[in-house]
Simulated scan of single mutants.
Amino acid sequence: MDKNKVLSTVAIALIILGIVMIYIGGFYAPKVMLPPIITGVGFFLIAWAINALKD
C-alpha cells in the first residue's frame, strides 16, 4: 500500500471509530465498557499511519 492509501484508510477508520464512540458514550455508557477498546483500536490505527509515514 502506498502512503496516500494508508492515510485515507486510517482517516476513514478514525472517523467511523469517533462516531461509534459518540454513539456508545451517549446511549450505552453505564452498561458497556467498549469505549476503552475502541480508543485502543484508534491508537493502533494512528500508530500504523505514523509508521507508514516514517520512511
Rank of each mutant, 00 (worst) to 15 (best):
I12R: 12
M33S: 10
M1W: 07
M33Y: 07
V20Y: 04
Y28W: 14
F43P: 02
I19E: 04
P35W: 05
G40K: 00
D55E: 09
V20F: 12
M33L: 10
Y28P: 04
A47G: 14
I12A: 15
K54L: 05
Y23C: 11
I24P: 00
I16G: 02
W48C: 00
D2R: 11
A49G: 07
G42F: 05
I15F: 12
W48S: 01
G25K: 13
A52V: 00
T39N: 06
N4H: 15
G26M: 14
I37R: 01
V41N: 02
V6I: 13
K54Q: 07
T39I: 14
I22W: 14
N4E: 15
L17Q: 05
T9H: 01
K31A: 14
L17V: 05
L34N: 04
D2H: 09
V10W: 02
I16M: 08
P36W: 04
G18F: 13
I19S: 11
T39P: 00
N4W: 11
I46F: 10
D55L: 00
F44Q: 01
I38E: 02
I50N: 08
I46M: 12
L14Q: 08
S8Q: 15
P36T: 05
Y23G: 13
A29C: 08
V41C: 07
K31N: 09
N51Q: 05
G26Q: 11
I22E: 06
G40R: 03
D55N: 08
A52T: 05
Y23M: 14
I12C: 01
I46K: 08
D2W: 03
K54N: 08
A11Q: 12
L7I: 09
G42I: 03
P36L: 01
G42E: 00
G42Y: 01
G25M: 11
I12E: 14
L53V: 06
V32L: 15
A52L: 07
L34W: 09
K31I: 12
L17K: 06
F27C: 10
T39R: 07
K3A: 07
I24Q: 13
I24S: 08
F27Q: 13
I19H: 07
A49E: 00
I37V: 15
K5W: 01
V10F: 03
N51A: 12
F43Y: 08
S8V: 12
M33V: 08
A29H: 13
T9N: 06
G42W: 01
A47Q: 01
K31M: 13
D55R: 10
I19T: 11
L17C: 05
V41I: 15
T39V: 09
A49N: 03
G26I: 07
Y28H: 15
